[in-house]
């Protein structure tokens, strides 16, 4: 694991808080799914928290994130309150998408969460388009795409990386290589599984990092985001990581990967590793982390209560917002 001492204490605590927020929220969503409170799909981010956390730590509300079906962690790291995420999966009017989206369609443009998607690939193109907007408007905003190894052999990867590179767009592509597209192993769907190497072939900055090391992700993203803001063009970070729960809640998780493999990645849990390291370094105290743990437990408890008490959407609104109309 990378050295932590160059990162200020407040930042270390903030990284820890975000990872724990994602973990506890996901564990709650899994329980709610098992209890039948969540009626639709629920893809958790457990095991991959360091990626969204390390990247989004460098983003402002006006930077635009485009995400995948496994997007709860991105939404939370970008600033969507847990109560709005939980309420969305509960199908309530107070959810971040007003109950229209569920797990795979999380929208909160107020904090730059421009949507998760049930289709693999489009987020790469949309982040490229955000970069196009920001370049045209001559701002220092950045477009960010999170996607998995499953998107890498999709045409959107080729077309998006190529356009971002030829036009020097301020975009960060973050590949969460968790080795499986649902249950198809990456090694079975690509001869070249070096995502960063492939990206470099398009002519953009690309590097691979340990996606379970939040400090490594944080530092790689720091350079990439700064490069984009300064007009240095797009970058790709391949974060090698693993989801330790099934593809989606309620699915079996056998046959395509071994328990031994799962256990080996659980032993590399990003939160456990980070907390041990920062305490051992003397950068923070165990009490600092405990304070955060307690606050997050309270926050998630409140989020569930909020979602449970929230109203259902009004069926009379079912066809609202299909069209925006013509500006006067």
């Amino acid at each position: 694991m990378k050295e932590t001492m160059t990162i200020p204490k407040d930042t270390l605590l903030s990284l820890y808080r975000t990872m724990v927020r994602i973990r506890r929220c996901e564990e709650q969503l899994a329980r709610s799914y098992a209890a039948g409170t969540i009626t639709g799909a629920c893809h958790t981010y457990v095991g991959e928290e360091a990626v969204a956390t390390g990247v989004c730590a460098h983003l402002r509300d006006d930077d635009a994130v485009f995400s995948t079906h496994r997007g709860h962690g991105h939404a939370l790291a970008k600033g969507v309150p847990p109560r709005e995420l939980v309420a969305e999966l509960f199908g309530r009017a107070t959810g971040c998408s007003g109950g229209r989206g569920g797990s795979m369609h999380l929208f909160s443009p107020e904090v730059g969460m421009m949507g998760t998607s049930g289709i693999v690939g489009p987020c790469i193109l949309q982040a490229t388009g955000a970069g196009y907007s920001f370049q045209l408007k001559e701002t220092d905003q950045v477009g960010v795409a999170f996607f998995g190894d499953g998107a890498v052999s999709n045409g959107a990867f080729h077309e998006g990386l190529n356009m971002a590179t030829i036009w020097d767009l301020p975009v960060l592509f973050v590949c969460e290589n968790n080795m499986y597209a649902t249950e198809v192993a990456f090694k079975d769907s690509a001869r070249n599984t070096d995502v960063a190497g492939r990206a470099a072939g398009y002519g953009l900055h690309a590097e691979a990092v340990d996606g379970n090391d939040v400090v490594a992700v944080y530092e790689a993203a720091s350079a990439a985001v700064a490069r984009a803001r300064q007009g240095g063009g797009p970058s790709l970070i391949e974060c090698r990581t693993y989801r330790t729960r099934p593809h989606a809640e309620g699915m079996r998780d056998g046959g395509y990967r071994s328990q031994q493999e799962i256990d080996s990645w659980k032993a590399r849990d990003p939160i456990t590793a980070f907390s041990r390291r920062v305490v051992d370094d003397g950068a923070v105290t165990a009490a600092d982390l405990q304070t955060i743990d307690d606050a997050i437990v309270a926050e998630i408890t409140e989020a569930v209560a909020f979602a449970t008490d929230s109203p259902w959407p009004d069926p009379a609104t079912v066809a609202d917002h299909i069209y925006g109309g013509v500006a006067s």
């Binding site: 690939g121 193109l125 949309q126 982040a127 388009g129 045209l136 959107a156």
Partner: peptide
């Protein structure tokens, strides 16, 4: 496909 997807993200921003 690529540039229509790009335009989607551009219109959102």
């Amino acid at each position: 496909r690529g540039f229509v997807g790009l335009c989607t993200g551009a219109a959102m921003t």
